[in-house]
Computed example of a mutant assay.
Amino acid sequence: MQHYDVAIIGGGPAGLTAAMTLSRSVRRVAVLESPAEPRNAGSHGIHGIVGMDGVSPAEYRGRAWADLARYGMAELHEASVADLVPGRDGGFEVVVEGGGSLWTRRVLLATGMTDVIPDLEGFEECWGRTIIHCPFCSGWENRERAWGVVTAEAEFARKAPTAFAAWSDDVIVFTDGAAPPDDPGVEAVTGRIRALRHTGGDLHAVELDDGTLVERGTLLWQLDQRPVPLVARLAENRGLALRENCYVKTDGSCRTSVPGIYAAGDLITETQGAVESAAAGSTAAFQIIEDETS
Score class of each variant (00 low, 15 high):
2 Q>M: 03
4 Y>N: 12
5 D>F: 08
6 V>F: 02
7 A>E: 01
9 I>N: 03
10 G>T: 07
12 G>T: 06
13 P>D: 10
14 A>F: 09
14 A>I: 11
16 L>P: 00
17 T>P: 01
17 T>C: 10
19 A>I: 05
20 M>C: 06
25 S>W: 01
29 V>I: 10
32 L>W: 02
33 E>N: 08
33 E>P: 05
34 S>I: 00
37 E>D: 00
39 R>C: 09
40 N>G: 15
41 A>V: 15
42 G>D: 03
46 I>L: 15
48 G>C: 08
48 G>Y: 03
53 D>K: 11
53 D>S: 13
57 P>T: 13
60 Y>N: 13
63 R>Q: 14
63 R>K: 15
63 R>S: 12
64 A>W: 07
66 A>E: 10
69 A>M: 04
72 G>S: 05
76 L>I: 02
81 V>H: 00
83 D>T: 03
83 D>C: 03
83 D>E: 13
84 L>P: 03
84 L>H: 02
86 P>H: 04
86 P>E: 08
87 G>A: 08
89 D>V: 01
89 D>R: 01
91 G>D: 05
91 G>W: 02
92 F>G: 05
94 V>Q: 03
95 V>Q: 09
98 G>L: 00
101 S>I: 00
106 R>F: 01
108 L>G: 07
109 L>A: 08
110 A>H: 05
111 T>R: 03
113 M>S: 07
115 D>I: 06
117 I>H: 14
120 L>Y: 04
125 E>G: 15
132 I>K: 05
142 N>D: 14
143 R>S: 11
144 E>R: 08
146 A>K: 08
147 W>I: 07
149 V>S: 01
151 T>K: 08
156 F>H: 03
164 F>W: 05
165 A>I: 00
167 W>H: 01
167 W>A: 02
168 S>V: 00
169 D>N: 06
170 D>H: 06
170 D>S: 09
172 I>T: 12
172 I>P: 01
173 V>R: 14
173 V>N: 09
176 D>G: 04
176 D>K: 01
176 D>P: 10
184 P>E: 04
184 P>I: 03
185 G>L: 01
185 G>W: 00
191 G>S: 06
193 I>P: 02
194 R>Q: 07
198 H>Y: 09
198 H>C: 11
200 G>C: 11
200 G>D: 14
202 D>K: 11
202 D>G: 10
203 L>R: 04
204 H>K: 05
206 V>H: 07
206 V>I: 11
208 L>H: 02
215 E>F: 06
218 T>D: 09
218 T>H: 07
220 L>V: 10
222 Q>Y: 04
227 P>Y: 10
228 V>S: 07
230 L>D: 07
235 A>C: 03
239 G>I: 11
240 L>I: 12
242 L>A: 14
244 E>T: 04
245 N>I: 08
246 C>P: 09
247 Y>R: 12
247 Y>V: 07
249 K>I: 14
252 G>F: 00
255 R>E: 13
258 V>L: 14
260 G>H: 08
260 G>S: 11
261 I>E: 06
265 G>Y: 00
268 I>D: 11
270 E>R: 14
284 A>S: 06
284 A>E: 04
285 A>S: 13
285 A>K: 08
287 Q>H: 04
291 D>R: 07
291 D>W: 05
291 D>P: 09
